[in-house]
Write a protein that binds this DNA or RNA. Sequence first.
DNA 1: CGTAGCCTTGAAGGTGATCAATGTTTGTGG
DNA 2: CCACAAACATTGATCACCTTCAAGGCTACG
Lengths: 238, 238
Amino acid sequence: MPLTQCSPQKQIETFLPELSRFPVFKNCTTNQILDLLNGATMRSTKHRGLLYRIADPANSFSLVLRGAYKLVRPTPKGEDVIVFFAGPGDVIAALVMPQLNSVYPVSAISMGPSLVLEIPRITYVNYWAKNIEIVMLIQNLLYNRMVLLQDQKLFNKNPLPQRVGRLLLQLIEKYSNDSEGILPIPLTRKEIADSLGSTVESVIRIMSEWSHRGLINTTEHHIEILDPGQIIKLMEEQ
Amino acid sequence: MPLTQCSPQKQIETFLPELSRFPVFKNCTTNQILDLLNGATMRSTKHRGLLYRIADPANSFSLVLRGAYKLVRPTPKGEDVIVFFAGPGDVIAALVMPQLNSVYPVSAISMGPSLVLEIPRITYVNYWAKNIEIVMLIQNLLYNRMVLLQDQKLFNKNPLPQRVGRLLLQLIEKYSNDSEGILPIPLTRKEIADSLGSTVESVIRIMSEWSHRGLINTTEHHIEILDPGQIIKLMEEQ
DNA sequence: CGTAGCCTTGAAGGTGATCAATGTTTGTGG
DNA sequence: CCACAAACATTGATCACCTTCAAGGCTACG
């Protein structure tokens, strides 16, 4: 809560040690990082808050510091599809910065209270796009996301329980700091369904059974995997 | 057929006008292009020929000149999934060039007789990775591929006929030079199924019905859309 | 206290996968 | 040039998985 009492510059400096550990800023000096964050401001969003709306003019992009965001695209029928879960260290909308007059390609919605560094497009053009190291690192992030999408495509034919299991294990691996089985972000069954291209009801049926069998525990909007071994076994069988 | 009688350098120069129209080489001078193709050789593959095998050491990447390649990943169960169709102007495996000792992330298999420019990794490191314009253009190709994968995810819940229709229209748009409805590459029903995460039988049932209704024509391994309007209508209904 | 978001359960029904058998075309080697 | 194998296309029958629709309960929050 004392954040708002500091100048933007001061706020950012607080996060410097953290920032320098992000893959995007690998091998960057402190001064380089400060250049890359020229004009940046902190922006916090509350649970279910909208960071970016799809098709809005994209004048800034974001670097996630805390929490998580779901990147969402609507289908023609009005349903939502989650194309990526962005966590600390991930960039949002950086890829549309190079073009002039671009728009956000997805909506970014906060999952739980979250925090980003919002960076003006002009800073991207002047500092990020001029630094080949940075461009390559961004490209690497992008590549990893594409491989994720490919992986999901590979497993699309598998029965739904296996795909739910995969998703949960992936998310825990990505977001769980202390290697416990608790997913530190609120993740609803609807969101699982939206990510897998399935329906709430189907996901609920699967996870209810897992709850009864003691594989997972889902209290106060947080999912905990009690028996990862069983889940993994589920996914390998057949 | 006189290609083999020329020196590699000469061969490449034959294609220069074509090359300079590729998005990757946008705004490049002829000399720049020749630098970027340092050590490159032409390589032709026949129908179903293997250009790259997944997990092999990646010492070179390719720029497609003629024909098409399917980029394939196997599932744990041994089935194939097509993650991308690469055509003239597309690069194959360029994204794993930056890292040392990388391996091919997909298998690249020729669809019909095809031709690529095979470029050694060292040329990527020395010329491509040093040119920020080129890196950004590659990033753009990568981004477009990711959007394609996202689009497929969006339509995954739609009934299979709509997804088959979408795929055919997309491929025709991408590969058909003369705006006719003929797909100039051989595309089997199995390949359609492998791209959509479905099965041959299901695809056949759909396309047979379309044939009988006169929407498409499929002679000698080539698919022709006779009535695009009907297909589009199919996809929009409901 | 009411609304909104989330979770749950049941019944019904359809889409598409699976399995099996067969026909057709293409390519290859003797 | 023929014969055989491999790749591709086809058709039918069966059935499981998952979607859809409907109804209701729980909790948080203004």
